[in-house]
């Protein structure tokens, strides 16, 4: 199929193709601020390191946009100024002269993000006149109850209930399972996610489950599927992915209650990934919310549940 699809346009253009270079308007570089404000429940520090590395972290990167036709790599700035406000009060400031200097290309402000608070990030750099900024009000932690696991044939069925608050929340769900005995030294977790039956969980394929399911590693759910109600979701883990005796298997369910911006961004991000692997894919417009420049500052509150068979 691919072979034919590649041949076709070539054939179509047979002898008449004429190619001319296109002059595009010059791109004016702007500051790009990307990052997350993420609240975590207490006890997250006790999780194994490989699980911790799968959590969203409160961190930021500051870079400079470049025109598509401009050669070279993206320039990440480590000498920019980043100021964090909580409910409009400055709580952290980082530049190259204090302890908050970037680690690698990222800034890790030493702050505790709490649900219900509004956090803003402001970034500037001497090369640019405009300060870029964006803020997020952190949603409450997702309330997860009735987590259970059962066996269906050779598959495992995981069920849990999300009690949706009246505020607008979106949910990002990932499920991890161990591929080595959890309590042995060599621990390793792979991503797994699979919805059993969209109708069963009261969500239809179109407006319930967002893009990203195609990668089979993440579920993104819209707020209007919950509307402040409790909903029970069910996930099926095929035997292929369990592959271990029951008493040695651990599942970790990670649920992030996300802001609208984070929901839109995550949709667009996973669509972009899908498009990168699909010929002739539709363009993806990455969601931005940063003022005066580019980038996405996103917010969420994350919980992790361990599930023992």
């Amino acid at each position: 199929m691919k072979r034919i699809v590649i041949i076709l346009p070539m054939l179509m253009l047979f002898a008449c193709e004429q190619i001319i270079d296109l002059d595009l308007p010059e791109h004016e570089p702007k500051l790009v601020l990307n990052g997350f404000f993420i609240a975590h429940e207490e006890g997250v520090d006790t999780l194994p390191q490989n699980i911790k590395s799968s959590l969203f972290q409160t961190s930021f990167s500051i870079s400079v946009s470049k025109g598509t036709t401009t050669s070279g790599e993206i320039r990440y700035l480590t000498d920019a100024n980043l100021e964090i406000h909580e409910n409009q009060i400055p709580i952290a400031f980082m530049d190259s002269s204090n302890e908050g200097t970037p680690f690698g290309n990222k800034y890790f402000p030493d702050i505790e993000v709490e649900p219900g608070n509004t956090y803003s990030a402001y970034a500037n750099h001497p090369e640019f006149d405009d300060e870029v900024f964006a803020g997020q009000t952190i949603p409450s932690f997702p309330v997860i109850t009735d987590v259970s696991i059962r066996t269906s044939g050779s598959d495992k069925i995981i069920t849990f209930t999300i009690d949706d608050p009246s505020e607008v929340n979106f949910y990002i769900i990932r499920l991890f399972t161990s591929t080595y005995p959890f309590f042995q030294g060599s621990q390793y977790f792979v991503n797994l996610f699979s919805i059993v039956d969209a109708d069963y969980i009261g969500l239809n394929e179109n407006d319930g489950l967002e893009a990203g399911l195609r990668t089979a590693t993440i579920g993104i759910l819209r707020d209007n599927n919950f509307n402040g109600q409790k909903k029970t979701l069910e996930m099926r883990v095929p035997e292929l992915f369990v592959g271990m005796p029951d008493d040695e298997t651990l599942f970790l369910l990670k649920i992030t209650s996300a802001t609208r911006d984070m929901n839109l961004y995550m949709r667009s991000y996973y669509q972009m990934i899908e498009g990168n692997f699909t010929p002739f894919s539709e363009p993806t417009i990455i969601h931005f919310n940063v003022e005066n420049g580019y980038g996405s500052v996103l917010g969420g509150a994350e919980v992790v549940k361990a599930i023992f068979p």
Partner: peptide, 11 residues
């Protein structure tokens, strides 16, 4: 038209 870095979700 242009390129930027993005906020990368973990893992």
């Amino acid at each position: 038209i242009y390129q930027t870095g993005v906020a990368e979700p973990p893992n």
